[in-house]
Design a protein around this nucleic acid. Sequence first.
DNA 1: TGATAAGCGAGACGGTACGTCCGGTCTTGAG
DNA 2: CTCAAGACCGGACGTACCGTCTCGCTTATCA
Lengths: 200, 200, 200, 200
Amino acid sequence: MTTPVRSAPPGRPRDPRIDRAVLRAAEELVVEVGYADLSVGAIAERAGTTKPAIYRRWPGKAYLVHEAAFPDTAPGPAPDDGPLADDVRAMVSACRDVFARPVARAALPGLLAEVAGDPVLNGAVLARFRAGTWGAMHDRLTRAVATGEARPGVDPDVLIETVGGATLLALLNRPDGVLDDAWVERLTTLLLGGLLPEPG
Amino acid sequence: MTTPVRSAPPGRPRDPRIDRAVLRAAEELVVEVGYADLSVGAIAERAGTTKPAIYRRWPGKAYLVHEAAFPDTAPGPAPDDGPLADDVRAMVSACRDVFARPVARAALPGLLAEVAGDPVLNGAVLARFRAGTWGAMHDRLTRAVATGEARPGVDPDVLIETVGGATLLALLNRPDGVLDDAWVERLTTLLLGGLLPEPG
Amino acid sequence: MTTPVRSAPPGRPRDPRIDRAVLRAAEELVVEVGYADLSVGAIAERAGTTKPAIYRRWPGKAYLVHEAAFPDTAPGPAPDDGPLADDVRAMVSACRDVFARPVARAALPGLLAEVAGDPVLNGAVLARFRAGTWGAMHDRLTRAVATGEARPGVDPDVLIETVGGATLLALLNRPDGVLDDAWVERLTTLLLGGLLPEPG
Amino acid sequence: MTTPVRSAPPGRPRDPRIDRAVLRAAEELVVEVGYADLSVGAIAERAGTTKPAIYRRWPGKAYLVHEAAFPDTAPGPAPDDGPLADDVRAMVSACRDVFARPVARAALPGLLAEVAGDPVLNGAVLARFRAGTWGAMHDRLTRAVATGEARPGVDPDVLIETVGGATLLALLNRPDGVLDDAWVERLTTLLLGGLLPEPG
DNA sequence: TGATAAGCGAGACGGTACGTCCGGTCTTGAG
DNA sequence: CTCAAGACCGGACGTACCGTCTCGCTTATCA
């Protein structure tokens, strides 16, 4: 009996070296020239291949860049234990680290623009983020609310959006793109304790 | 003593009807086709004028669209009195209202992408926002911190970035672009009281 | 020995329908609006294509129009036999016919202006004319001089320039552009008197 | 009683130095850059004045250039006596001299192109030429036909067109623009052979 | 082993949109 | 009514780039 394993598709298989070379070239180039001035032709040239070879693999610049800028990575240490405050601080810091990488700083704004108009791309990007730190954090927050470690009524999604959005805008506001630990501390404090002074 | 009279500049004055027609056309078209598929030529045609007339007035599509999508408006009622909680809720609501307008939803993602790579445009956009509700809110928060109405150590800029960023990402995450009052309430509560339950 | 086979050039081949549509559109439009008011964009629109498709085929308006106005044609019946007088008359008449066509009347003045400043175009236009009636006539005259049928010392090039130039100016001088057979007869008579050897 | 003499027009009179400076600038520039690349703005700048001052004086580039390239000149010695052969040779030579001047070589082709589409300009140019050598030659030829010095039936206009056209095309054919005396002799001989009545 | 099918480099194509040049006009303020 | 200064409007330009296509070849699976 033959195995139900999907057999190889007919025809010549793709050269995996091209995949790697293109992703690497895209990563380099988006940092050098920015998302808007990044052209598929230039990526092909840098990667030592041709435009059709790229378009066979990705539907367009956005799909390629989002994979190059946010490659599938190990989800990092699950922030599963310790006090909630430490976990939130770690989440803010991780988000800052991810968004502040040069390739992310270069790619994100343009990527967001394309995501807004392309539901398919939107789903791909969200899936990529959910598979990383955000997914783990969502679970952590949900549990925290259930156990009373966090104030009841807090929506994990709102918190995640808030952390991500604040980081994004903070980076856009600072031309040098530096978000130091003091900034992390300020945002964490605000999120944990709120704006109002504690009563009593 | 120099005369405060501003004499008319030399040369033929601009036709103000063109300014208005172009802004109006840009506003309509960005909603109809989206920022990426918006072309200066199409705006010119819709406005009944030509591309050079537009390039004389704005350096490029982004400068034009940011003015069309966020026109100079009356700064709104100064949120000067009342409890801080109400003022923050009003600020969140106002930010939601501004960003959720169809023209803003259509323009913002593309605009952010261009802002990230153009410091001049960045300054222009920030100035436009600071002249509106954000400026007033900044003052309000600064005073609140000084009087002890808000927790000491809170940075007004961080709060503003947080509100703006959270709104932005929330809109991007929801294809229908609907942010109801319950969402406003959830975000306001988080910002006012924080994530952690009150001690004691 | 090199293979005489001409392999297909690399890349996507041109769509020959575009060549035909553009030439046809140029021919029509130059008659309708004149050479000066003829724009490449208008030709492209009439032909149902775009400007780059035209610029890929011709370096500019002049090259396109000269091909549209004077397409490669069968070289006509060789004026090889018969009395020289008849052949000269036929040549004058043919020149009149070629230049008096509406498309030629519309295109020639502007074309001459550009030819004067562009040696490459100059060569292209001359080659086109030499491949037609003028080339055959040149040979005919050269032989006539050699056999004594024409006065010795006559320069075939001078005669051809003279016929062409006289026709050109005659057309420019007559707003209706009508050069009747009487005009052909007058010019032929003038030229023949000098061309034929004097009877003993 | 006031004199019926037309009094000076109201308002500030035109500055005649501007007329001269503009004509001179146009003459220089058309030689330097050619008719097609000649812009009214550049003429104004070179002349030390402005475009409106030029447009007040001439309806357009063509009118200005034709005056700059072919200024009103003394009609030259009337070719009234001497053998017809000498007069024709002088006419050919004079035509060559006029057309071969650098400014004429630069201006003529472009001028012809505009003349072809503008009856008013056409009349202006023709009048300018008729006032010069061509007018005198026309009279000379008419008399010659009447007295039998020239072959009966010769049309003076055809001869003039022939000389002008042959010269024009000869210049266009020669990139260096040199028409030497041998060329004059060849053309004259060709024309005279047909023009003179056959002896005996 | 040969047929089938897809990938590959090379490179040109069709077409959208760009940003600019310049011709001709208009306004202001002075003469 | 002219002048200088200068900006304005709009037609047309020639180009850059995107995404696709054609070609001749290579590399694999399947019959």
